[in-house]
Design a protein around this nucleic acid. Structure first.
Lengths: 214, 214
DNA sequence: AATAAAACCAACCAGTTAGTTTGATTTGTG
DNA sequence: CACAAATCAAACTAACTGGTTGGTTTTATT
């Protein structure tokens, strides 16, 4: 495959990510992807067997991306346990804001088929194993709840970040608050961290949620 | 409209709820809805202007349902504050398990358009106002965090329940746990409640998450 | 029994869409 | 330059799908 062909294939994939994440598998149009990529429709079928294969590649592409970005967590050590919740929550919140294609495709995927769940697992395994060790060390030091497993802990953090974006429209309406506003997001992050942090002295809680410089 | 017609319209709506919640607006097929309702396709257009109107009715129907079921919270009083988190979390977890059409349609709606957000707001306003009063009274008694608003509190509970179901496939895979198993669900509920409850004595946390008879 | 609403049957229409084909043109490389 | 890979243009097919139509049958009501 020549360099030019590689680039064309790449442009198709990028356009497909946008189209599929916006409208899902059934709503997406192959002709739109071709137009958006500035490419002849025929080229799509030159590089991808059919619409479904293209969709699979899109999922694989975007699921790999979150795995790659999570790699920075490998730099964390046991000493980072006290502010690990904040680091993780901010990472996911910002990631979802920066790459809305991810949470959208994840949502579509869970609604429409769920055939690509294994991809997500594969790209995250290593980092999660690393984080689990830090968490368990933190548990022994009393930073994290003894009865709350690492899985549940990470589940809650993921749930907060995902739900904040995946239900932004309905939430903004229901609570009469504009969740798209960064200031609002900052407030929610602080409050969530306050709720998830163990406070040894329940009376004084001013120290928390002041943010950690990164 | 005769009684028979009312029933036919009802059967169409029920079939439409199933079809739309399974496949979303674009994936759903009018012919399938007709077949599932055991009704002639023509009847659909006798009672609903078009596919989009039918979809709106479906959303309205299912959004009203959650509002109706939340009405039992009106029986709660300030004395229930200590176990309010448990009552709410269990309610939403069980509701999502019993009526998967709700979280699915909510997810579709947020992905596909978001035009019906106001419906959800309208049906929940009254109950939420009631719960807010209990929450704020609880805050004054130290049961809930002083810095965490009622909105954020309810947001987290909703996020946990929604995410647990909306991402069940990917989560089960990633964490190597079968979230469809009721025992697993029970464990997650307990751990989440442990994480969300204020513990005055961080060392002893056995007392919590033993469940509250309802 | 008469009437009208409700429902059925089945063909049909028009627009859409994934995927193909044919043939011409451009571009990079030996 | 010569050749092959890459791309374009545009028409085409076959299946699908939302919605309609015309004529017939069933069912409830008076």
């Amino acid at each position: 495959m020549q360099q030019r062909a590689v680039e064309t294939r790449g442009r198709i994939l990028e356009a497909a990510v946008r189209e599929f994440s916006e409208k899902g598998f059934h709503g997406a149009r192959v002709d739109v992807i071709a137009a958006e990529a500035g490419v002849n429709k025929q080229r799509i079928y030159a590089y991808f067997a059919n619409k479904e294969t293209l969709f699979s590649e899109v999922i694989r592409h975007i699921f790999t991306l979150i795995g790659d970005e999570e790699a920075i967590f490998l730099d964390l050590g046991e000493g980072d346990a006290p502010h690990m919740s904040e680091i993780l929550l901010r990472h996911y919140m910002f990631f979802h804001a920066r790459v809305p294609e991810f949470w959208r495709l994840l949502a579509w995927e869970n609604l429409e088929s769920g055939r690509h769940a294994h991809v997500l697992k594969d790209v995250r395994e290593t980092v999660f194993a690393h984080l689990r060790r830090i968490y368990q060390a933190g548990q022994r030091r009393g930073i994290f709840h003894g009865q709350v497993s690492f899985e549940t802990y990470l589940f809650i953090l993921s749930a907060i970040a995902f739900f904040y974006y995946a239900n932004q429209r309905t939430l903004s309406h229901t609570f009469n608050r504009d969740l798209a506003d960064p200031a609002m997001r900052e407030q929610v992050i602080r409050e969530c961290l306050a709720l998830l942090t163990i406070h040894n002295h329940p009376a004084s809680t001013e120290a928390i949620s002041q943010g950690v410089s990164r």
